[in-house]
Design a protein around this nucleic acid. Structure first.
Lengths: 344, 344
DNA sequence: TATATTTACGTAATCGATTGCATTATTAAA
DNA sequence: TTTAATAATGCAATCGATTACGTAAATATA
């Protein structure tokens, strides 16, 4: 076989013109049903399918979406990608995935590559560097070429894009309240994702609730390669910490591990709620109460929104969807109203 | 801007023919350096880059690779993908990712889609279903269109493809020996990835070593949604189990969790070595001795092999690369020669 | 029978870039 | 000054599919 069979080749074998063959395959009313049948049969035999370059050249549509994520070795983004791939393949779209590694430079290259590849749309969750520096020129590039953007999870104001996220401020409030209601007096926020919009929104929500409860907000920055054990120990020793909200799966696990490592118990001495509900938290001992950020749903919604945008179903101005997250109760928090829960 | 600027447009503005402009941009010796300069300057101003469909139509090359993996919510495959993406973007290739969800049906659709998309090559780790049924017609399709295949991790005999993997048989042998050397008498193999070549190879290696040591091989199939706790309990109670090799990250964690849940200690009563070295095992308490399958390296090597194949650097017959895995010593195994290691 | 309609198909342009083969302009050799 | 050689550019075909438009044959209407 070697090469894909072309319309020209089919036409020659059928002693018809290329245009007739094309019309027959596309069920044009101009073509007699007999001819259609002949053409389709031969096409089937040769497993004909249209050359996508030729079609792309004609229609300027690729049915391909570009996706840019900061990382793939993250439960959250893996789940988003899972949702994206599933929905896209359902809707007949291909997906080109790029990983920015939190670098604005790589992100820019990815954007340019995707534009060059003529993707029909770009789904992006910007890198930390982009969110920190707010250098967003490269994110304005796609719309110059009429390529729509959907941003998810991490959002940036002032970019013309549809937006999918959860309400991080609200969810942080709810998580903080949850801890306070379960008896915590000194709730801290441990962040491993500084310089993201997501993080700032959560700090806002967290801060609001703790200050309402007369507690000075305390935020610890966690570098996952180098956990600040000393500071944690000090807080624990001085009894300045009995509840923690953590920003992401890895930070959650590291925090939990170090609390246990310091000889304190979870949830009795320290309660913990972590953003991102993944296998790691679920299988940790004790299992960790987590905030399900609806990662897969965000991915699916990002794709379906993008496809609606491409197909012109959406109004011209950008739309925003905010999904409701959910606290998954497990064993790193004490149950509301129960003084001292048994260790399960 | 709206639309990409074309050669025709540049030609009009420069009052040159399209072919001259094209040749100038491609540094043809036919074109005077003055004209080249003029052309390139205008092209820069308008941020010209060639339309990839038109080029694809001409050259039949897309600089795009297709990747099919059984899952993305798996530390192993995430790491492979990370390696694939990184190496591909280094070499100037795009990557379309498809997820088969262990289904032969989805895998077939993915293959067809990738062929239709005219990718330059396909990287695949086949689904369980494909490996179990050995229905591999769809995997012979790409070579009919001269699209090369690189298989990684899970391999299938009789398919014309370059192959990247570790030596699972050997690594299972080594892991089993490691447990036996550390004092285990009854080493079992817990598998969560039945019906894969990888699994069978490991069983072979495991079986060889335990039978050499006069122990009847014992293999437990683990369904990650429904861990066989009762059977585990029975084995533990009857003292038929003091060492376990596990097949993948999730199985490892679930096994560890359930051993602890049953009231036994790790590594004192049961030692554990798990395939795949990921964050989950690293952060578990106790941290888990793991086999680093060189996931990222497999991904990188798969890409560079594919690119060599595409560029005609490799000999016509398929090549195989076998990477050496590595046991990462942690706290779920007793140290060799030390009777009873302190719990860290 | 002459004209109008319909049916069925072919011609040729188009999308954008590349390239072998003219063709013209310029310079060098005779 | 005429011819030969070289340099610089344009023409036109090509890749494969689509589609507006043109044309021939078959049927319907007057």
């Amino acid at each position: 076989m070697k090469n894909h069979i072309t319309l020209k080749e089919l036409a020659k074998q059928l002693d018809l013109s290329v245009s007739t063959v094309s019309k027959a395959l596309n069920d044009s009313p101009e073509i007699s049903s007999l001819t259609k049948k002949r053409v389709k049969e031969l096409a089937d035999i040769h497993e004909y399918f249209p050359n996508s370059f030729a079609q792309g050249l004609k229609f300027k549509k690729t049915r391909t979406l570009g996706v840019i994520v900061p990382a793939i070795l993250s439960n959250f983004f893996s789940m988003v990608l899972d949702g994206i791939e599933e929905k896209a393949s359902q809707l007949g779209y291909k997906v080109i995935i790029c990983i920015s590694k939190e670098s604005i430079q790589k992100e820019k290259q990815a954007v340019e590559m995707l534009i060059r590849s003529q993707v029909d749309g770009i789904l992006i969750s910007p890198s930390k560097e982009t969110q920190a520096t707010l250098k967003t020129d490269h994110l304005n590039l796609p719309k110059k070429f009429d390529i729509p953007i959907v941003m998810f999870d991490r959002l940036i104001e002032g970019i013309e894009a549809d937006k999918i996220s959860i309400n991080d401020t609200l969810e942080a409030e709810l998580a903080t309240m949850e801890l306070i209601n379960s008896g915590c007096k000194q709730v801290c926020y441990f962040s491993g994702i500084s310089n993201t919009s997501v993080n700032e929104n959560r700090i806002e929500g967290y801060t609001k609730v703790v200050t309402q409860n007369d507690f000075e907000p305390k935020i610890l920055e966690v570098n996952c390669d180098n956990f600040p054990v000393a500071e944690l120990k000090k807080l624990l020793k001085n009894k300045q910490l009995d509840g923690i909200i953590t920003s992401d799966e890895l930070t959650t696990i590291l925090t939990a591990r170090n609390i246990l490592g310091c000889g304190y118990t979870i949830p009795h001495e320290v309660s913990l709620i972590g953003f991102t509900n993944g296998k790691m938290g679920e299988t940790f001992i004790p299992s960790l109460t987590s905030i399900d950020q609806k990662a897969k749903e965000q991915g699916e919604l990002a794709v379906s929104t993008m496809v609606d945008r491409i197909e012109g179903i959406l109004p011209p101005e950008p739309v925003s969807f905010i999904l409701k997250a959910q606290i998954i109760q497990r064993d790193s928090t004490r149950k509301f109203g129960i003084k001292d829960d048994a260790f399960v």
